[in-house]
Write a protein that binds this DNA or RNA. Structure first.
Lengths: 211, 211
DNA sequence: CGTCATTTGTGATGACTTTCACGGAACAAC
DNA sequence: GTTGTTCCGTGAAAGTCATCACAAATGACG
């Protein structure tokens, strides 16, 4: 069973993280060969209808009366999420957050290989951390070309983020995960996803005092 | 001008982070006294109608024909977001991510004071990092009571997260920011917000290969 | 005071997302 | 075969959220 690109409908934004959760549920279900939408729902906390609808956006992967093949569905989800192959990732900004992400094992386990770090601080350049060497920013173009880097994680201060992103776009990076608390401009075709830790805490604060 | 609690309507989930963005835009507008929804929209990348609607969920803060008072609106947003006072926060799990968050200045700037760290690794217990002491987990109850800790950030491995959360709930913590990639059970009244870095990367991967 | 330009707050509309509910496909059992 | 059970895929309904568009409010100006 294979997933073949077929964009008939628009995919709801929130479907995508749910697919990741479904995939994790499948990883925990090695002993069974078939799994129902109801079981996936129980394991993930969503509803069975939601599971079926989300999967149906991408094709017909189940068998009525039986369920979904765990092995096949895992492959399909890997393909849909784009993690059926390795991503070479550059990490820009080797401050505390950058170091933490470099050491975070979760990335490598999902096929995201951080293959080079970049920083402008001379004290950090040249260091070897977790098997990853830290380079000066002006070496970015060289490595991006050589190692086909198409994804980057940005953990520089807000004031430097736009310039860094411009450089990344310039060397062909197509997807950027940005931790700097600032809205960044990118040309069409380049995807950017922002994680703002202060805003996440504020959201929690709001939840805690309301409702 | 003051915001008085009045929950007539349900607040859309996505309104809350937008409020944080509006607040940031106001911080950058010190020279002006009045600001229009149109200007806030330009600064944040949303639409003017969205800005007005979001604010209107909580009351009437503007003046027709004039706009919003920057000073007043800042106060209102601080109140709505619950960051008009300090939060005492416990940080559980002093691994790489925990250390990065401890050193991250953005938290303290928004009134989130990490006042104690906790870990079960004997090599970490007793250390002093960024002015914060690392304690054993079994000392949690004592500190939670003494310092009125009502919020916690959890950066322990997935396998330990539920036990940690149970302890936090037991000592009266009401809001938890969880970085462990696992779905956690909490009783009603306790708010939990999850950030899963691997899933965020998968979302980016999806965006990069589709559309 | 009347007119004009401006901008809020909100009813109405439209777009998007989730849930419901059921036809039909698949297989087991006899 | 036929019956019974299971469970997917999806049209339709319900629910949620964003945008439109305008009445009403405000102050400037003469």
């Amino acid at each position: 069973m294979t997933f073949t690109e077929q964009h008939e409908r628009r995919i709801p934004q929130r479907t995508i993280p749910r697919l990741s959760h479904y995939y994790r549920a499948l990883l925990e279900s090695r002993e069974v060969q078939l799994i129902s939408s109801e079981t996936i729902a129980e394991l993930t906390g969503y509803t069975a209808a939601q599971v079926r609808r989300d999967l149906a956006y991408f094709g017909q992967f189940g068998t009525p009366g039986r369920g979904y093949s765990v092995e096949d569905l895992k492959k399909v989800l890997l393909q849909i999420l784009g993690i059926d192959h390795q991503w070479n990732v550059a990490l820009i900004g080797m401050g505390n957050l950058g170091l933490a992400l470099l050491r975070y094992r979760g990335f490598h386990e999902q096929g995201f290989n951080i293959i080079a770090g970049f920083d402008n601080d001379p004290r950090k350049v040249g260091q070897m951390i977790e098997g990853v060497k830290v380079h000066q920013m002006d070496e970015l173009a060289e490595y991006a070309k050589r190692d086909q880097i198409r994804m980057a994680v940005v953990t520089v201060p807000a004031s430097a983020a736009q310039a860094v992103v411009d450089q990344l776009v310039g060397v062909g990076v197509k997807a950027i995960l940005n931790f700097a608390p600032v809205r960044l401009q990118v040309p069409g075709g380049v995807k950017i996803h922002n994680i703002d830790l202060a805003i996440e805490l504020e959201r929690l604060s709001f939840l805690a005092i309301h409702k």
